[in-house]
Design a protein around this nucleic acid. Structure first.
Length: 485
DNA sequence: TCATCTCGCACGTTTGAACCGG
DNA sequence: ACCGGTTCAAACGTGCGAGATG
């Protein structure tokens, strides 16, 4: 197993995808660039984006070694990526293999996410990096057991506004800041066989979020008070004697969240304390609960020698209640069809919030850039730790502006887009399908029209659109119906 | 003045080294 | 020497709250 941090110590556990946009994005960069409920695989985009991967997904043998003209010889040199990948550059002509439609993904802790989603998930971000809670935990099926894959996570901005907590709810408040450096978190097991990934749920609990744009640890960089949508990508790294390449991206609308440096909604705070084992100390009977803290302060002010409170004394004798058995049953999950965020918006307003998905950043490009490194070859050294991306065409960005809510998934899965995993005992009454968005990794340069989304009536989102790539200003088409391709 | 961010704190959990016995 | 179980301390992950910042 290769650990990304070992392969690219300069990047840490995740990787920058590209330098910051030259001169920033044009005023009002892709507004509402989210592709809401990208519950579709875009066959055409698959081809386009997979084609971009092709040169970077070298064929591997059964053991995951690079195949080449002289297997016994020295390691193959890195494929020379066409750097920089400018907007005017032609895409590789060949139609490469792509992950079959049978590849599916489901969110393991969907119920937990739904509970948070219904309140308006907030994620703390800190300079040193903060883990996500709930964590991303997915199950994958349909992979070739013998082929190698990488699993990656990136976080796409959802909407082009920043938000403000207004005491009771989140409301849009001005334009979003320029996107921070794109990074992608590569699961430490990557690359691993399909069998490995399918054996058990894949957890991304080590993923950390930070607001430090100069973060040296490779954490995913986000802006506070902005809304984001995590995405999970499966990138084929080659099969037995076969060619590598192919990818599929999945989003789970209920995992969208707002970034904060301190929790704004007391409900979220309470839910985190109740659900997160690391926060047990803040539970009602914990020694760090408000009651206990107040008591400590009073004792301190009186100068008393701390006499253990009843709870403390109990804990000394054994595990606190909070460690015995499952945490208290949280309240029944609210109906996710209602979302406090969107509920505060006038119809048609709050474009950002309506759609849980953000702009489509080129992701997983770390692997695309340095695939050989995952197979035991030296990665190229990028300037200042940032590798320029062959796929760094700014940003293909699908982007519809959803109306209505959401950070929450539709109440029911769309009948024909269901990416349901077929298991003998589905753990959820709610079909655990992931939203396969095809391959978003760098997709969308000159792709053909994307199919129309068919999620209504749950989400009356317009069809996704891809923003013409490069070139800063000129490349971007602004909101509305403009920019549809 | 206000909203937001940073930092230190105290607590619980996780992890891995050290130790022990079979 | 090896293996498996236990113990313990350090590292890490939490939310809180005071103070700093813009």
């Amino acid at each position: 197993m290769y650990h990304p941090a070992e392969l690219f110590p300069q990047f840490g556990g995740s990787y920058p995808l590209r330098p910051a946009p030259h001169g920033g994005l044009p005023a009002g960069f892709p507004q509402g660039q989210a592709a809401p409920y990208e519950g579709f695989r875009y066959p055409d985009l698959d081809g386009v984006s997979a084609a971009k991967f092709e040169p970077f997904c070298p064929p591997l043998d059964r053991a995951g070694r690079l195949l080449g003209p002289s297997p016994a010889g020295p390691p193959l040199p890195l494929p020379a990526p066409p750097l920089p990948y400018g907007g005017g550059q032609q895409l590789p002509p060949a139609e490469p293999p792509r992950l079959p439609p049978s590849v599916r993904m489901s969110l393991e802790n969907r119920e937990l996410w739904k509970r948070f989603c219904a309140v308006g998930t907030e994620m703390i971000i800190t300079k040193s990096g903060r883990r996500m809670f709930p964590q991303l935990k997915v199950s994958v099926t349909g992979l070739d057991p013998e082929a190698k894959y990488l699993l990656l996570v990136d976080v796409a901005p959802a909407g082009a506004s920043r938000f403000k907590w207004q005491g009771q709810r989140w409301e849009a408040s001005g334009k979003a800041e320029l996107p921070p450096p794109d990074r992608v978190y590569i699961h430490p097991d990557s690359p691993a066989s399909g069998a490995h990934w399918m054996r058990q749920p894949v957890s991304f609990h080590r993923l950390k979020l930070t607001n430090n744009t100069l973060d040296p640890h490779g954490h995913l960089i986000l802006h506070s008070m902005h809304r984001y949508q995590p995405r999970v990508h499966v990138v084929g790294a080659g099969g037995p004697g076969g060619r590598g390449g192919g990818c599929a991206s999945f989003t789970f609308p209920e995992t969208a969240f707002l970034t904060v440096t301190a929790y704004q909604s007391p409900k979220i705070t309470q839910m985190k304390i109740e659900s997160n084992p690391f926060a047990k100390g803040f539970r009602e009977n914990g020694m760090n609960s408000k009651r206990e803290r107040d008591a400590r302060i009073k004792r301190k002010m009186r100068g008393d020698v701390a006499e253990p409170t009843r709870n403390e004394a109990d804990c000394k004798r054994g595990p606190c209640d909070s460690t015995q058995g499952p945490p208290p049953e949280p309240p029944a999950p609210p109906d996710c069809s209602f979302h406090p965020i969107s509920s505060s918006y006038p119809p048609g307003g709050s474009e950002e919030l309506g759609c849980p998905l953000g702009g489509v950043n080129p992701s997983a490009e770390a692997y695309v850039q340095h695939p050989a490194a995952f197979h035991g070859l030296q990665p190229p050294q990028g300037p200042a730790g940032y590798a320029s991306s062959p796929c760094a065409a700014p940003e293909a960005a699908a982007a519809p502006k959803p109306v209505g809510d959401p950070g929450c998934p539709p109440a029911k899965p769309p009948p024909d887009q269901s990416n349901c995993r077929t298991t003998s005992a589905p753990p959820l009454t709610y079909p655990p399908y992931g939203l396969d968005v095809g391959c978003l990794l760098g997709a969308g340069l000159d792709g053909p029209p994307a199919p129309e989304l068919r999620f209504p009536p749950f989400l009356p989102c317009p069809p996704p659109r891809l923003y013409a790539p490069p070139g800063p200003p000129a490349g971007y088409l602004e909101g509305g119906s403009k920019g549809l391709f």
